[in-house]
Design a protein around this nucleic acid. Structure first.
Lengths: 339, 339
DNA sequence: CTGAAAGCGCTTACAG
DNA sequence: CTGAAAGCGCTTACAG
């Protein structure tokens, strides 16, 4: 077994015959080092394969070189894809990604009360977690820049990146109305505790507004747990009612895929007997010929990373307050005019 | 804006009228503190919402409280699910997860040469990355316990967790042979650089062995890039040949889903004209009625986490050298006897 | 441009 | 059981 490496700043300094102060300055690109000694230091550091101790650096006033990323869960396409966007940017600049998941309400409560990220990161990206006032306050107590992806718009000019969920819903429902549907139901996703995420509230608002504008009062809404199985269950609920709607707007593609599965198993033809539309443009949407409203997911993560890194830079670039990315309708074969 | 918290060990010590040495010992559950003072210290720490500075702790010989997790990419179901298993365990004990992705060969090269994880973590979990001798050496130079999920079995009694990929392939191909197929092709996934992952090599070996045992020499193998689109492309290749095989064994469900997409678009009936089988039991497999060989994915991550945490514990439990999890055939409607 | 020195907040022998 | 003190490896005023 190879002995553990422990090359310190002192080793680099000795090799160059300079003080550790100069090494520290040179390595971080600070002014106050002559080009000649800077060069010597840089190459010595390279030869020795020296890396600064992040602990020591942080302790003496430097940064941690780490950014916390908070997602509700990771084994879901949306979050994994946002994360991939973030990770790509971080990787390019050598920032470490500390991952936090909040799978249930107890984990979530623990996260905001104990603040396990305290003293551990230079900034935080929080994805699709609608924050209560209390949670917002706790997050601010971390004392580091924060950028939010999705969820409610934060107050106080804090940076936010996302799509217009109400518009996305309008695009989906507008398509159904335009091709002649009037009897449209929605399958809404809620989490284990029955709480709707922020995106959901906006999407259901968009749904209701469009329906009201089309003169349809009180359309059917079914609430189901998040995920493919939830979608399957939602369609079972609709099938067990006296009359089947002519179209269904699903909160997300995963819900829609579950709904399609139930329809296939029940022998109900899509789109002949019922139209189905989702939101996301999940990789499986194409496979299942699902009409959907596409959103740029990886790009949301990428932009969040860029903004955070900018805020951390020497210039401390102020982050844009709100960045709304475009969504667009993708028509496939799961929607058609009512029979 | 709330002022940043900076409660230090000194604050806790002063509040109790003891030295920081006692606070340090009490907080870490070390012996040498009387029950009475220990109690006072613990409650003072709680009242002040004190958390040790990980940086200072680490610098003076403690641990980092962090474990690195390395995956090829994160926006793929398998890796995201393994990660979810790891994160669940880490969360329960308050260990931080530092995520590293190796999306391409240059990122991979950088990772093993620069060792960005050096000095930053107490242990490493590396997922599905078949290591060269050089890479293995570099990883050992991190000087921390390492556990591998999937990939080649590491030498030197290092811990490994995974499935028997050769067996998984046998289960899939055995099923096809048993229901009467002889003309079976395989769609193999390779990465951008055209390299096969370790799992792939084992699966193709299992395929060839089964075919040879059944008396079929030199069955067709198509190599495609990883992912759904790769699978679609692989099936296009097979369709462009003079004769269509009666069944296709796909390296993974994502490959199989792509293959199914191409077949649907070409109007080739599954399973009437061709049978398709994959490996994984991906959430979309059920939706697409894909026969597959299921493997416990989340469980592989969970076990890796448990082993790493055990090795980090005071007892320094030695890790089991090799843990092979079971796979099982899941028969759905994409396979049937040849016509 | 360069270095000696203080200090970051802990852990750990070493004394008592 | 308890505390004073050294030391972990850096960064940053402060002098030169």
């Amino acid at each position: 077994m190879i002995p553990r490496q422990t090359v310190n700043m002192t080793d680099v300094a000795q090799r160059c015959g300079v003080s550790i102060a100069s090494v520290s300055r040179a390595l971080r690109g600070e002014p106050g080092v002559s080009p000649a000694t800077r060069d010597r230091i840089m190459s010595a550091a390279r030869e020795l394969a020296y890396v600064v101790s992040p602990e020591a650096s942080r302790l003496s006033g430097g940064s941690t070189g780490r950014v916390g990323v908070v997602v509700p869960r990771i084994d879901a396409w949306f979050y994994a894809t946002v994360l991939a966007g973030v990770a790509g940017e971080f990787d390019a600049v050598g920032v470490d990604l500390v991952l936090c998941t909040l799978p249930d309400s107890s984990a979530r409560h623990r996260f905001f009360e104990a603040l396990p990220l305290r003293r551990k990161v230079d900034a935080v990206i929080i994805v699709s977690v609608p924050l209560s006032a209390r949670e917002r306050t706790r997050l601010d107590q971390l004392g580091v820049p924060t950028v939010q992806v999705g969820g409610h718009h934060p107050a106080g000019g804090r940076p936010w990146i996302g799509i217009d969920d109400e518009l996305a819903a309008s695009q989906a429902v507008g398509h159904l109305l335009r091709i002649g549907h009037r009897d449209i139901a929605m399958i809404q996703a809620v989490d284990q505790e029955g709480t709707a995420w922020a995106a959901d509230e906006a999407r259901i608002r968009g749904f209701h507004d469009q329906m009201a504008a089309a003169g349809v009062a009180e359309p059917t809404v079914v609430r189901v747990p998040w995920g493919i199985d939830g979608g399957a269950q939602g369609m079972e609920t609709l099938l067990s009612r006296p009359r089947l709607p002519s179209a269904v707007f699903c909160h997300s593609d995963e819900i829609a895929l579950g709904a399609l599965r139930t329809l296939r198993k029940s022998g109900v033809a899509v789109p002949q007997q019922i139209s189905v539309i989702g939101v996301d443009d999940h990789p499986s949407a194409d496979l299942s010929e699902l009409t959907t409203v596409a959103q740029p997911v990886r790009e949301q993560g990428r932009l969040a990373a860029v903004q955070v890194l900018g805020a951390l830079g020497d210039d401390g670039a102020s982050m844009p307050v709100r960045t709304t990315l475009p969504t667009r309708l993708v028509i496939r074969n799961s929607t058609a005019p009512p029979h």
